[in-house]
């Protein structure tokens, strides 16, 4: 396995004015690995996601996506990233199919290829019969699944999800967590899953604990994630 593949974050720092949000953050997620980025609210997870998707930029540190330096080859790197933001980003006025086609087009995929990929995604979600309904008609769980399917339509090698289960019921949370674990195991996707919920982390997952902008732990999650998390982050968990 080439260590340059997957996702590499080396010495990344970021500040909002005088407030340090990330300080010398480093970790590597190999291909096919599910990495849980665990941290309490305000730990810097969303800031890190903004840097990983190049919404924010920083001169401190280096980010590589599938071997592409995000600052030197942003287009090549972004083409290999699928992202699901914490805030919903579906266009609720458009149909389910149109949402998929729109995102495919933003990645330069059009015509038959785009239609074929959107049908494939809808079939995989079991939502083919709802393709022409407005996204507004979907429940929270379906919307999240749609966002995940949409993030994969350009066949990225790295999938970033920023607290994707926020606001969902327990059963839907489990279903979505299972779904993304399968994507990593079966399709070889590199997954970075930001969360503040320890029950979403499995023993075999890679676990990165972020607290006050610093990485406190990077390794296999193992058993006792909650205890480890509480021990490292204290009462704020």
């Amino acid at each position: 396995m080439n260590m340059r593949d997957g996702l590499s974050v080396s010495g990344v720092s970021y500040s909002y004015g005088s407030r340090r949000a990330l300080a010398d953050v480093s970790f590597h997620v190999p291909p096919g690995r599910f990495c849980a980025l665990l941290g309490p609210n305000g730990a810097g997870k969303s800031t890190l996601f903004s840097l990983l998707t190049r919404l924010f930029t920083t001169r401190e540190g280096r980010i590589e996506v599938a071997g592409h330096d995000l600052s030197k080859s942003p287009r090549a790197a972004l083409a290999r990233i699928g992202v699901v933001f914490q805030q919903p980003t579906l266009d609720l006025d458009l149909t389910v199919r149109r949402n998929l086609l729109y995102f495919a087009a933003l990645h330069g995929i059009s015509g038959r290829e785009a239609h074929s990929r959107s049908e494939e995604a809808l079939d995989r979600l079991g939502m083919a019969e709802r393709a022409d309904e407005p996204a507004r008609a979907l429940n929270g769980g379906h919307r999240r699944r749609m966002e995940i399917a949409r993030a994969l339509i350009h066949r990225p090698s790295v999938l970033l999800l920023d607290e994707p289960t926020v606001g969902l019921d327990a059963a839907t949370r489990v279903a979505i967590t299972d779904h993304v674990h399968r994507l990593a195991a079966e399709d070889g996707l590199t997954v970075l899953w930001a969360t503040h919920l320890t029950d979403e982390v499995r023993p075999a997952d890679q676990l990165v604990i972020l607290h006050r902008g610093q990485v406190l732990h990077d390794g296999e999650a193992g058993e006792g994630v909650t205890e480890l998390f509480l021990k490292l982050t204290g009462a704020e968990a």
Binding site: A76, A77, T89, L106
Partner: peptide, 10 residues
């Protein structure tokens, strides 16, 4: 957020 999505296009 939807502008964020647009801006992650390569």
């Amino acid at each position: 957020g939807s502008m964020r999505l647009l801006l992650t296009s390569p």
